[in-house]
Design a protein around this nucleic acid. Structure first.
Lengths: 116, 116
DNA sequence: TAGTTATATAATAATTTTATTATAAAATGA
DNA sequence: TCATTTTATAATAAAATTATTATATAACTA
């Protein structure tokens, strides 16, 4: 992934917010991102996540009926630093979405892989 | 400039390379960027620069017949850090363009503002 | 002043990206 | 098994971005 491709991934509101929310929370499933980004439809979010996955920025883990997305730890260090710097210095950019997320009822329970 | 807008500015080859070349060199005029990005036409480069200027990322200074573009020092600190981190960790991304630039004959002389 | 160099802009066409709607598939649970 | 929940995908439409070509402007130079 060259720098331009990397930044194309960040150059969209839904994609950037999803990345920052996932970076903040560790991992999130599609239904949690739907709750956080309440104004966006499910296929819209799914398509953007599919894009980020196919470019190698996100990983997925399937557990029961949920698909959890996380930041791929194998992306270049500078890219990880860009994401965490952007998150740290722009919390207000995702604050309302974090609030919506934490207000969400019935969040899927996470089961550590050791106990499945 | 919110984070998404900022990253839209970086999400194009000509724009990102121009930004990194300018960050590396301090300031560059359009004809120098044309020499560096030899494969791109003048109006193409001018239009992308106009975009970056209108979004507040670049400043211009006119000296004689040339227009010199530089990074606006007033953009958010995190944004400046993103640019310098990207530059530092991806020199190879612009190396051929820096070489073309330094091979360019008759680069416009810079006159410090004190001596104009 | 006429020609040249450097840069910008406008009009249009081409391309790419994004959204919408409908539907499918996979897993769960009654 | 049937209904429900969660997620993905496909088809199409809509919107946004980008490229191309032509032209304009401004400054310098002979």
């Amino acid at each position: 992934m060259n720098p331009t491709e990397f930044y194309k991934n960040l150059a969209d509101d839904i994609r950037l917010k999803s990345i920052l929310l996932i970076a903040q929370e560790g991992e999130l499933c599609v239904c949690e991102l739907m709750a956080a980004l309440a104004e966006s439809s499910q296929p819209k979010i799914s398509r953007h996540l599919a894009l980020l996955k196919s470019s190698g920025l996100l990983l997925t883990r399937k557990q029961k009926q949920w698909v959890f997305y996380s930041i791929n730890p194998d992306i270049a260090r500078w890219a990880q630093q860009v994401i965490s710097l952007t998150l740290k210095e722009n919390i207000d950019f995702i604050t309302p979405h974090l609030q919506a997320l934490h207000l969400m009822g019935a969040r899927p329970e996470r089961i550590a892989s050791c106990c499945e």
